[in-house]
Amino acid sequence: MVNTILTIAMAIILLSIAISMIRFLIGKTSVDRVIAFDIMTVSSIALIAVLAKMTGRIIYLDIALVYGLLSFLAVIIIAKYLEKSL
């Protein structure tokens, strides 16, 4: 039962990643693409957390932690470049 619910959650998260990828591919402005990249990162963190729950190993959550910290840094650097203040 729990496995079924987590599998459905994984499918929904993958759908959200696919929709953000469509926005990333056809996006007109720079801001569209950067925001789509950020949404894909957050969705990936959610996917990793669901997988950690499914496999039952809490140590896998460390990867989600490192991921969140570093992708935040990358998006901040891109935003500073677009603001011309890097």
């Binding site: 990162t41 140590i59 896998y60 460390d62 990867i63 490192v66 991921y67 570093l70 992708s71 840094l73 990358a74 650097i77 891109i78 470049y81 890097l86």
Partner: peptide, 21 residues
């Protein structure tokens, strides 16, 4: 998971920041 951790640290953050600079 260890390869995934290294890929996240180097691919997402370090490469992007160095290329943007």
């Amino acid at each position: 998971p260890d390869v995934a951790l290294t890929e996240a640290a180097i691919g997402v953050a370090l490469t992007t920041i160095i290329f943007i600079i």
